[in-house]
Nucleic acid binder design. Sequence first.
DNA 1: AGCGTGACTACCA
DNA 2: ATGGTAGCCACGC
Length: 97
Amino acid sequence: MKSALREQILTILAAIPSGRVTTYGRIAAMTEGGTPRLVARALRDLPKGHGLPWFRVITASRKLADHPGAAEQRDRLAAEGVMLDARGRAPTERLWP
DNA sequence: AGCGTGACTACCA
DNA sequence: ATGGTAGCCACGC
């Protein structure tokens, strides 16, 4: 069986509205005992066609995390109206509480 | 049990 | 603001 914590992380992930983003730390804070590392690991371990909006998760500095899917993430976010500025940072208003 | 690793953060120069 | 560093914590070898 999978850890309840990971399920909670995925549940929160699925709850992020389209066109909004949130951070690893925010998700971790919403869980019980979660840490940003755990959230990152949970995303990395996701199966390919899970259908969850993994691309709506960014770092605390509002940039895309350094990972192999970053380019795709940038495109997917743009498709939802989340444009990154010249420094690659997402606007604060797009942050999901 | 110990050690290295990573889709992170917070802190400090 | 930018870059380096220490802390964190589950996982795999």
